[in-house]
Amino acid sequence: MKNFKYIQPKSLSEVKKYFSDNHSVLYAGGTDVLGLVKKEVYNYENMIDLKSVPDLDKVEEVKGKGLKIGALVKISEIAESEIIKNKYTALSDAAQKVASPQIRNMATLGGNICQRPRCWYYRDDYACLRKDGDYCYAEEGENKYHAVIGGSPCFIVHPSDTAVALMALDAVFNIFDGNAEREVPISEFFVQPDEDVYLENILKPYEVLTSVFIPEQKNKVSRFIKFAERDVWDFAMASVAVKVEKNGNKITGGKIILGGVAPIPWYDEKINKGISGLTLDEKSIDEFSKLALQDAEPLSKNGYKITLARNLIKMILSEI
């Protein structure tokens, strides 16, 4: 690890000035970014700690509208929140499944959403595409944990559990660009590798995700389910978040987002088209789940993810 400077800005507007060159990075809980510098994936010279900026760590209910969660709110706080558990269950489920208790106590929501990929080539000393090299080592290499859809030319999966849940909940992100704040719907936040192979989202290095707004989920139920090889301290092999409105045992509208299968939380067209009108019985769910990932192009070692994701859809729908 190379030496870096640790900087504590006092306000949001102060942040941008530390980004005059390309050697700074935002620092929240540090659970990811410290790993990156320790492994020398990047050699940042300045770490700009957002924890010293006031008021980014609040959870606020906006009556009748929804919930605003500051980017610096800890994952453990989200996991334990009764409001989130009752009204935004998918996010609560996801937060509880992140990493391990120790990491959840340090990790923030903003950091979880903006964390960098876990591809093992990327995290080690391979000069792959995402690190300005000219080759994706995973495509024909050890790709058991990689993307089955939306991958080319880089086959990472997005590592965040909370992002999958937030996408199902139609969250809106508030972003501060150094001068002003703007709102970006989550569906426009993440970036696929064919658009930009270096970044996972639209943020410029100095832009701060300040808070996440989740609209009120009236009459809707949401859930998140994750599957990993280990039940703790492990990333998703696949995950599913759903949000539905029901009439009896018929779904009248909703959304399904897949995690662990693509470089971004994945909105599968076919399955989302089919969800409205689905009857929640075993046979219909079984048929329905097969709509998912029909356009997937698995690599040599990750074909199982298609079955897995479809099975997780079955599991989550039969419990909803």
């Binding site: 093992w120 000393d125 024909e140 290499g141």
Partner: peptide, 12 residues
């Protein structure tokens, strides 16, 4: 797990 192409260890 070793990456056979580069001959390098992945599970580090």
């Amino acid at each position: 797990v070793i990456d056979n192409y580069t001959g390098k260890l992945l599970t580090t």
